[in-house]
Structures are given as C-alpha cells and as structure tokens.
C-alpha cells in the first residue's frame, strides 16, 4: 500500500538492494554483521516512510517484512529482528495510547531509542555470553567445538584468562572455518588440537564438554546449525557428554523446523566438488543441520541460560504471534 506513496527510489530501497547483494555474495560474514545491517535497514525505513500513528508504521513494517521474506525465506535471523522491532513498537504504542499525552515526533524518538537499545544488545551479546564462561569451563577440562563461531571463540578466550584447559576443534568441512578459529585460539595462548570432522567419534570419549554456536534456534529448541552438528550431537548423546550452545537471543526464531521428512534445507552446490563434474553425478551440500532439542543440554544466551524446553516461553515474550492478527480475517 505504501509502495504507491513512495514515488522515486528511496534511500531505503537502495539500502535494501545493497543488503540483499551482500547477503547473496556472502559479504556479511558473522551473524552480528547481518543483524546490524538489517537493523540499519529498519531504521532507514522508519525514518523515511510517511506515517502518522503507530498503527501506520506497523502496517508499513509488516507489509515490508512480508515482501522481504518471500525473497529470503532462509534468513531466519533477519526476520527475527524485524519481528522483534514490530513487537517493541506494538508494546510501546500500546502504552502511548493509554497515556495519549505524547505527540508523533516523540513517538518517533521513542522508537529510535528502543531500536538503538536493540543495537546495543546485538553488539554486546558476544561479550555478555562470554562472561558466563567460567561457570561452564573448569580447570583441566577438555572442550570440543566445531567450526567457527564468534561467540564460542570469545567464550573460550574469556575462560582461558582464568583457567587452563584443552580445546579440540573440528574443522567443519567443507567450510573449513575450524582452521581459522583453531589458529585464533592458538594465538590467544590456548592449548588447541585440530581434528577432521570424521574423527569426532574417535576423539569424543575424552571430551568433558562440547560448546558450539548455531545459525538460529527454532521455537521448539531445535537448532539450525552447520552441517555435521547433528552427528556431533548424536555422538555426544552416545557418550552422555553435555552439549552447550552459545547464542545471541536474536537467533531465537518463532518458527518451527518444517516437517522433517522433507529436505528443504538442502542447498546443493559445487562447493564440495569444485571442479567440473558430470551432470549425472549429484553433489549434495546441505547448508545446515536440524538438531532436535532433546540432544541439546543447555543454551547460554546474553544474560541467561535455559534448557531447550524453556525456549518457547522466551519466544512468547520476545515476539508477537502471527495468529493473533489472522483472527479478524477468520471470524
């Protein structure tokens, strides 16, 4: 609806295009970067579009969200941020309507300040999570991690300041970003061993705790994580080793993993086999694994730690639920 009111190409559209390009060309490396980029996008949209009441603004945000996520259905974290903002504006505007003393410009300022709160939360989430590490890593333990996660790296480094422990890193093929984290940790003075993914089961019996990151978290507490995480989690279950997931709160998504007998998360590519291959040879390269919640022992978020079974209550607090809006159409 607001498309008609915006005549020329706005800054928002330019920004949006840039954002989508960066996503496509994988220029945004960490989830923090993606989160910050998308919050900037929202800020632009709020600052630019014409609205009088909070209701208008919500409509604009919602319709923009809908059209955006038809295009990038797999980017759960970006969507989470949009939903977060919508929820916050909804709550704030509810308060304002009750007082009714405020004027529009004030509202704008208010939204801007709440959004900058989210930015602060994003920026500080890594360090906040890391500061809890001493409760989970003890002297002379052996920790296993897989692939590169900013949060896990900070988590381990923080603990290493006070405790001495050994870290085993699985390389996470075919991304091989495990190599990077291994050398980073080694430079920071940790005791590091690098193994291939196939060696996980062999090594895991001597591990005390597994600490991993994740791409996002589904509403039932299941993980959307790098490929290979599921087999790691199963190995951990087999040996009864606790699996701890470090994550920012923004990775919590109110969506569920689609029915599990499908393979919708497969994004096969020639990254596994980079050279030319015969078309009859199918090369599958799934982009992520679904790890069911019963394999996860504990989530460590910015400020709290929770069991997987509690995740859905956190989500209920963080997002407004879509079903509530559909009612009107229904009855």
């Amino acid at each position: 609806m607001h498309h008609q009111t915006r005549s020329t190409k706005s800054d928002y559209e330019i920004e949006l295009k840039k954002f989508l390009n960066e996503l496509k060309n994988r220029e945004l490396n960490s989830s923090t970067q993606i989160a910050l980029a998308s919050i900037r996008l929202i800020k632009k949209l709020i600052g630019e579009s014409k609205w009088k009441t909070a209701g208008d603004l919500l409509d604009i945000l919602k319709s923009e969200e809908r059209s955006l996520f038809e295009r990038i259905p797999d980017e759960l974290n970006v969507r989470n941020i949009w939903r977060r903002v919508i929820k916050i504006i909804k709550d704030e505007s509810f308060n304002i309507e009750k007082n009714q003393a405020q004027i529009d410009t004030l509202q704008g300022n208010l939204f801007a300040s709440t959004i900058s709160e989210i930015i602060i939360e994003i920026e500080s989430s890594v360090s906040n999570t890391a500061s809890q590490s001493l409760e989970h890593i003890h002297e002379n333990e052996v920790i296993l991690t897989m692939g590169k996660s900013q949060t896990v790296e900070a988590f381990l480094k923080y603990a290493a300041r006070k405790r001495k422990f050994h870290v085993i890193v699985a390389e996470n093929a075919p991304y091989l970003d495990g190599h990077e984290i291994a050398s980073n940790l080694q430079k920071a003075g940790l005791d590091v061993t690098l193994i291939s993914d196939s060696a996980i089961f062999t090594i895991i019996s001597r591990v005390n705790t597994i600490i991993i990151g994740t791409k996002s978290i589904f509403a039932n507490g299941g993980l959307k994580a790098h490929v290979g995480t599921h087999s790691l989690a199963l190995a951990a279950k087999h040996h009864n080793i606790p699996l701890i997931v470090c994550s920012s709160l923004l990775k919590l998504s109110p969506e569920y993993f689609p029915n599990s007998n499908n393979l919708p998360h497969l994004l096969p590519s020639d990254d596994v086999l980079s050279s030319n291959f015969h078309p009859n040879l199918t090369v599958l390269n799934p982009s992520f694994d679904y790890v069911p919640p019963e394999l996860v022992t504990l989530f460590i978020f910015n400020s709290t730690k929770n069991a997987p079974s509690y995740v859905y209550r956190l989500i209920r607090e963080m997002y407004s639920i879509e079903g509530e809006e559909e009612e009107d159409e229904l009855f």
């Binding site: 059209s67 295009r71 499908n262 393979l263 919708p264 096969p268 590519s269 020639d270 199918t282």
Partner: peptide
C-alpha cells in the same frame, strides 16, 4: 551445474516468482 545452484542466478527479486518444491531436491 546451475540447476544444482539456482541461487546463483535467482536473485532476491526474481525468487518471488518461483516456488521450491519441498519434497524433492532442488
């Protein structure tokens, strides 16, 4: 090759015109 990696040509604007079938690969 492209059939296995349609995301290379399907940019985010044209993607809306297509649907990915869920019970088969790519």
């Amino acid at each position: 090759k492209l059939l296995q990696r349609v995301d290379l040509v399907l940019d985010y604007y044209t993607r809306v015109k297509y649907r990915r079938l869920l019970d088969s690969i790519n």
